[in-house]
Every structure is written in structure tokens, then in C-alpha cells.
């Protein structure tokens, strides 16, 4: 099958599918009018039942907590897959060790302005702090573990572009990161199991709910959100390190 045939086949299918879809969508209720009862029920109840002001996070980490557990393990297994696929193979490791330096393959290292260096180092701390803030206030305002985790995990890239490669390598390749990834995933499941130990169904909110609007409120929602944050931070840090591993070792060779 050549490209032309493939595109032609796609065009026929797309026109057909688009026509059927549009005919069906024309019978939907207009999009500015929401009709389902469930959203209204939960929006009215969540604040009183769970003492969390952010209903979306209350649903994600409590009402639909089991789905999020599955999603968490999906992230875990995806990162495991990335690490398995991108791990250095044995012969490759030897080859890169023997390989002589070859500066031509890298573009000449462009000079880095001092402003960038100072700014990125200054912003690094601010960035991590902001990630922690977003991650721990998920039950009150928009935010939550996932968003905070991604922000924290992207922070070491600032050190990398500031040519502070040693610090970057020390943070990213620390064995603690892998431990944290496993810990985050396991802690979520353990919180669920703790409910079983007390004698109530899996992932029931067993902790005291606290005052609405307080940071230490909403029981297990805040705790699960923090666990997800730890897991996501570690997972994305690992992914970044796996992608950059070769380039890092090569840069090190050139420096020596």
C-alpha cells in the first residue's frame, strides 16, 4: 500500500465517520446546558461530606480513588517500561568507554551568559517551593499532587541548562529517587489497605476530617495527594534522567 492509497483510504473513512458523527452530535442537548444530575449532587455534597473545598480533587482522590490508584500504577509501570527500554546495554557501555573524544559531534559549546546562570539558580529554589505549595494545597484551591509533582520534577532541568551539570547529575541519579517512586505508589495502596484494617471498605476516608478551609483538613485526600506528588516527582525525574543519560556521560567524557 503506497502513501497515496493510504491517504485516499483515510479520506473516505474520515468523510464517512465525520458525517455519521455530525448527524449524531446534532441530536445532543446544546452544550451550554448541562443536564446530568450527578455533577450537581456531588458539587452540593462534597464540601460537607469530605471537608474539601476543591470538589474536583475530592472526586479524583476520594470518590473515584480506586480509578486514581489504577492510574497511579499505570504511571509506575510506564516509568518502569521507560527505564527498561532505555537502560544502557552491556556492549554499549563498553563501546562508549572506549570511544575517543570527538568534539566535532557536539556543536561548539555556546557561551552561557552569567545572567542566565544566576537567574536559573535563583529560580530553582523558588520553583521547588512553588511545586510544594501547589502539591500540598490541592484540597483547598486548584492544584494537587500531580501538578506539584510535575513542577518539582522539571526543576533540575534549570540546573542542567545553567551548566551546573554536577549538581544536576547528583540530584537526578540519586538512588533515593527510585526509592521514592516505589514509596509513593506503595503508600497510596497502603492508605487504602489501612481502611480495610479498621474494618471499612477499601480507600474509605478514615482520618479525622478537620476544619473546612484548613490545610490539614479533608482526611485522606490531602495525604493521598501528597503520595501522588512524591510518586510523580520521582517518576518524571527518572524519565528525564533516562533520556539524558547518554548525553550526560558523553559530556563528562569531554570534560575529562
Amino acid at each position: 500500500m503506497t502513501r497515496k492509497h493510504r491517504l485516499l483510504l483515510f479520506l473516505i473513512g474520515a468523510i464517512g465517520a465525520g458525517f455519521v458523527y455530525c448527524a449524531g452530535a446534532g441530536n445532543m442537548p446544546p452544550w451550554t446546558q448541562y443536564r446530568g444530575p450527578y455533577g450537581d449532587v456531588i458539587a452540593g455534597l462534597a464540601v460537607f461530606q469530605r471537608h474539601a473545598t476543591d470538589t474536583v480533587n475530592a472526586i479524583t482522590y476520594d470518590y473515584r480513588g480506586f480509578d486514581t490508584l489504577g492510574e497511579e500504577f499505570m504511571l509506575f509501570s510506564a516509568v518502569t517500561g521507560v527505564m527498561l527500554l532505555l537502560r544502557p546495554e552491556k556492549d554499549e557501555k563498553d563501546a562508549s568507554a572506549k570511544e575517543p573524544r570527538n568534539p566535532a559531534s557536539f556543536r561548539d559549546r555556546a557561551a552561557l551568559s552569567e545572567t542566565v546562570q544566576v537567574f536559573t539558580t535563583a529560580v530553582f529554589g523558588l520553583w521547588v517551593l512553588f511545586g510544594i505549595y501547589i502539591g500540598t494545597h490541592g484540597q483547598l484551591t486548584p492544584g494537587g499532587g500531580f501538578q506539584g509533582g510535575v513542577i518539582i520534577a522539571a526543576a533540575p532541568m534549570l540546573l542542567y541548562i545553567a551548566e551546573n551539570t554536577d549538581a544536576f547529575r547528583r540530584i537526578v541519579s540519586h538512588p533515593f529517587v527510585e526509592l521514592l517512586e516505589g514509596f509513593g505508589a506503595a503508600a497510596y495502596a497502603l492508605i487504602g489497605l489501612a481502611a480495610l484494617a479498621v474494618g471499612v471498605p477499601f480507600l474509605t476516608n478514615i482520618l479525622p476530617l478537620g476544619t473546612t478551609g484548613n490545610v490539614f483538613s479533608s482526611g485522606t485526600i490531602a495525604l493521598i495527594s501528597a503520595c501522588v506528588g512524591i510518586e510523580v516527582t520521582a517518576a518524571f525525574t527518572l524519565v528525564i534522567f533516562e533520556y539524558l543519560r547518554e548525553i550526560l556521560s558523553r559530556e563528562k567524557n569531554q570534560e575529562d
Binding site: V56, I134, P142, G143, F146, Q147, V150, A153, A154
Partner: peptide, 13 residues
């Protein structure tokens, strides 16, 4: 909420 995760994932990660 989704906007924040879209900012972190779609525009950065």
C-alpha cells in the same frame, strides 16, 4: 483544576 494540569503537562512536561 484541569487548566493547571494542562499548564504543567501540555506546556512544560
Amino acid at each position: 483544576d484541569v487548566a493547571l494540569s494542562q499548564i504543567t503537562v501540555g506546556a512544560i512536561a
